[in-house]
Write a protein that binds this DNA or RNA. Structure first.
Ligand SMILES: [Zn+2]
Ligand SMILES: [Zn+2]
Ligand SMILES: [Zn+2]
Ligand SMILES: [Zn+2]
Lengths: 138, 138
DNA sequence: CCTTGAACCTCTAGTGACTAGAGCAACTAG
DNA sequence: CTAGTTGCTCTAGTCACTAGAGGTTCAAGG
């Protein structure tokens, strides 16, 4: 049994974040000492490790709730887990695509200005004022 | 002179967002009718167009404030504009790099599960429970 | 001129996933 | 036993909006 601080050190999840996950229902309310302090065991450490890894991979709290629910019921179909992972992958790909378009515009804009001129003739400011200079939509 | 709704249609910025920009100091408080409704002119439409374009390119409200300040003072050095654009470019590149790492893990995870099995043997759930299966850090 | 309905006004609260801080209680090492 | 760290709850703040309540003003048709 260890304290919330020890759990935090073991998992790399900050103390207030652990309490937040409890509030959100991701972590169950743990046992308490007589003095009302949280005490965790091995199962909770694993659960929090799962949550942290999923968060690091960008899954939302809601998605993680559903995944944990499945993890707690090993006999259920994993169709939902597959769906959630596929959805997460596709939204990451969409974000990459959109950021890549931004990157090409921004590199053009940034390259167009050395920072040695005056605002009136600045390529950055002119580009922001006029989307027609852009090569892609956004 | 046109109403906030007309300005919204011209620029593609939603009405509550325009009011929000005014509250944040990005847009100046416009003239009002006798009945207290906002009336805008050409200068304000251009300014809002500038803001929208910058937002579409991912600049923060704070960055846009600084850029507008420069735009309003054409004789100043554009060094700050150059810095802001370079910073924005570098943060977009960092995001792309991080999302690309996630993408490769997520595609491995997603490919590993057809959705036809049970939770106990699911590759998605097993991968989330154990970061050692990952090929990159995150 | 009057009515109707759309558009406008302000203000508050909610989103997601935390993070910071106040003010107090409990635990632990020396 | 005491000092210092860690813990507790609760509230409010972050970012860039978005939604809703409850009321007012505007523009067009009759
Ligand atoms: Zn410049
Ligand atoms: Zn553009
Ligand atoms: Zn599976
Ligand atoms: Zn991993």
């Amino acid at each position: 049994m260890f304290s919330i601080g020890a759990l935090s050190r073991h998992t790399g999840v900050k103390v207030p974040t652990i309490r937040y996950y409890e509030q959100m229902g991701l972590m169950c309310a743990p046992e308490r000492t007589e003095g009302n302090q949280r005490r965790y065991g091995r199962a909770e450490r694993e659960r929090l490790g799962f949550i942290k890894h999923a968060r690091d991979l960008g899954f939302s709290i809601e998605a993680i709730s559903a995944l944990i629910e499945l993890n707690d019921h090993p006999d259920r179909s994993c169709a939902e887990a597959s769906e959630i992972a596929a959805y997460q992958l596709s939204s990451v790909r969409k974000k990459i695509a959109s950021l890549t378009r931004l990157e090409s515009e921004l590199s053009r804009i940034s390259d167009g200005c050395s920072g040695n001129g005056i605002a009136d003739e600045c390529y950055v400011l002119a580009s922001l004022a006029d989307h027609a200079r852009c090569e892609t939509d956004h």
